Amino acid sequence: MGYAKGILILMSINIVGVCGVIILTGFTGLFSLGHAGFMSIGAYVAAILTKYFGIPFLLSMLIGGLIASLSSLIVGYPTLRGKLKGDYFAIAMMGFAESIRLLFSNIYPYFNGALGLSGIPLKMNLTTSLIICAIVVYFTFRYLNSQHGKLLISIREQEVAAELIGVNVTKEKLKSLLISAFLCGISGGMMAFYYTYMTPNTFSAELSNNMLAAVVFGGMGSISGPVIATIILTALPELLRAVARWRLVIYGLLMIIVMLFRPEGLLGNKEISLYPFIKRIKKEKKVRDVTIKEGK
C-alpha cells in the first residue's frame, strides 16, 4: 500500500511540472529542454527555507516557485527579445538548466555542493500532493481556456499573423515562460519534501526530457492528454521492473510505436469532458419525465 501511495505522489509531482510545460510548449509552441533547472531552483529554495529558517513548507514552496519564475527572466528575456525560437530556444534552455546544475554542485555550505542536501523534512503526503495537483490542473485549465490561452494558441499557430493583429508576442511568450517556471518550481519543492534528500544530479536533462515527452506523447494543445501521458510514463517504468534488464528498451519501443501510429499524441488537441455524459443523463431524465407525465 505504501509503495502504491509513493507512485501516486510521484504522479502528482510530475503532473504539476508537466502543467508548466503544457503552457509553454503545448500552447505557446516553445520547446524547452531545461525545465529541470526551474524545478531544481524551486526545490533547493523551498528545502533551505524550511530546513534552516523554519518557514512553513507551503510558504517555502510558493517562494521557491516565485524565485524559479524570476530566474526564468535571465534566459527568457534576452532569448525571446531576440526572437529565438525552435531549436535555438530549446538549446538555450538546456544550457541554462545545465548551468544551474553546475552552480548548485559548487555552492557551500547550505547547498552542500555535489554531496547534496539531506535531512529535508518529510512534508509531502498523498493528500497534500493530490490537493496541490488538483489546484494546479484546474488553474492550468482555466488559464488556457481564457483569453490568455487563445492568445497563446494564436502565437503557436501563426506568430506573424498574431503580431499583425496587435498581439504583443514577446510579452505573451515571456508571461507564458514565467508561469511555466513557477509551476515547475512548485513541482521541485514537492519533490524535495517527498524525497527528503536531493543532489544537483536529481534534476538532470532526463527529467526535462521526460516532461517534454509527456506533452508530445499526450498531445499538443491538450491538457487531459499530457496528464494521462504523465500517469502512464510514471507508472510504466515501475510496472516493467520485473524485466529490469529490458525495461528501458521496452519503454523506448512503446514510445516509438505510439509516435508512429498516433503522431498527434493520445488526444491531439482534444480534452476529456464529462459534458456529453451529463447531457445524455439530462436527456434521458427529460424523456422519462415526459413518459411519466403522459402515463398519468
Rank of each mutant, 00 (worst) to 15 (best):
Tyr3Ser: 13
Lys5Glu: 12
Gly6Asp: 07
Ile9Ser: 02
Cys19Gln: 05
Ile22Leu: 12
Leu24Phe: 10
Tyr44His: 05
Ile48Cys: 02
Leu49His: 00
Leu49Ala: 04
Leu49Ile: 09
Phe53Trp: 09
Pro56Cys: 15
Gly65Pro: 02
Ser71Ala: 12
Gly82Ile: 12
Tyr88Met: 12
Phe89Asn: 01
Ala90Cys: 08
Asn106Tyr: 11
Ala114Asn: 13
Ala114Tyr: 09
Leu115Trp: 10
Ile120Tyr: 00
Met124Phe: 02
Leu130Gln: 11
Ile132Leu: 15
Phe139Ser: 01
Arg142Gln: 15
Arg142Tyr: 11
Arg156Pro: 08
Arg156Thr: 04
Glu159Pro: 09
Glu163Phe: 06
Leu164Gln: 07
Ile165Leu: 14
Val169Arg: 03
Lys175Trp: 08
Ser176Met: 06
Ser176Cys: 12
Ser187Phe: 04
Met198Ile: 12
Pro200Phe: 04
Met211Tyr: 02
Val216Arg: 02
Ile223Met: 03
Leu233Asn: 02
Ala235Phe: 11
Leu236Gly: 02
Glu238Ala: 06
Arg241Met: 13
Arg245Cys: 13
Trp246Asn: 08
Tyr251Asp: 00
Val258Asn: 00
Val258Phe: 04
Leu260Gln: 12
Pro263Arg: 05
Glu264Val: 13
Glu264Lys: 10
Lys270Asp: 06
Ile272Gln: 13
Ser273Cys: 13
